[in-house]
Write a protein that binds this DNA or RNA. Sequence first.
DNA 1: GCGATCAGCT
DNA 2: CACAGCTGATCGC
Length: 412
Amino acid sequence: MLLEEVPVAVDSFNHDGGVLFFCSHAHEDHLKGLNKKWRKGPLFASAITRQLLLLKWPSLEITALELGRTYQIPLMDGLEIEVYLIDANHVPGSVMFLFSGYFGSVLYTGDFRLHEKHQDIASLAPVRDLVGPFLQVNFGSFSKTGDKGLSRIYLDNTFCDPRFQQPSREDVAAAISKRFRRKWPCIIFVESYRLGKETLLLHLAQKLRSRVLVSEERKKTMRACGFESDQVQIQSCDPLQASEDLLQTEALRGCIWAISRQNLRKGMWQASDSGCAFHGIRATGWAEQARKEESMPSCEDLDENLVAVSDDGVFHYLYSDHCSFLELVQFLQFLPKAPVTFISPVGSSEGTYSFDGADGIQKLMASASVPSIRYSERPTRCFEKTSLPRAKRKAEGPHEEDGYEQKKSAGA
DNA sequence: GCGATCAGCT
DNA sequence: CACAGCTGATCGC
């Protein structure tokens, strides 16, 4: 997104209007426009994110920024911008950016999960001191109170609806290790993306006194994230390449095996064909849908954090790398009041499991006293099947991306 | 031909 | 649906 206050682009790299570029973390959907030949401007990221990007594109030029200190970076025409990185507690390397300068102070959260340390953001110098005078000149609504603080918050609104009440990742990890202690030893397949859930894998391995098995690529990723330790052995091993013999050995010994979503079922079938003891774990923020779709476990087998067990034996847990709705409210309450821009487009309430974006916006404004929320609307899904080739559809013209803003006064 | 991008899917 | 990808088709250098 290109910030409106200053020509800075975060997590999107196609903007010719961008002067400085920042990457909040190395998930694929935050790297749009990046490629090995990308050279639109200076690129900044945390040291870990930089390492992860270099694994993908070794020739990229990226400046690593440390967390917890202020950097002055030249912008244009003698102007500079200050930036301060904050741990976003989302995936390894993920950060929030606090930008400040002639435009005031702007917080870009990126994807994040609330952490105690986020309370300190309000006492950081750019929020506490720097912005006041600028706000009095440039921002009418703030000059009345003379508030110091933030001129805007770009917020991770992934789960901005009261129905999202995911427990802490620590609680869920503890519940998982407790449950699987009784099933030990076995192969535990843990579905995971290319980046994320490392803490869960290591927690399980530690609690079960076992090892983590990952793909070769993921082992490099974990090394770049600094996850090598003497405590837990991380072994590279592809479950789909494993021989029957190896699967049986691993099952008898017990192991935590990271596996991609599209390979989870295949891996489980192979283990099953080899006569192994195994289980699958799906730990996602969207587990609520599983509760509706899958049969629930028998009552005596229930624990609070197990969401559902599907027919084929996959255990679904509600494990989220994004804030719950309550955490979003708490986060905003830690900060000075400021207008909010949602980072992700908002959808409507159509569809069985999608939540009502408008409702979430109203609830957030009411609960956290947000003066206004700006957001773009997710294009409504076109259910009409079109058999036209892409070139022809393209010729019919692009549709506008509409922007919206809801003000507090307009609400209930 | 190949890498980048997009549509479609889960 | 889609947390964040993957696959296969197509674009374009």
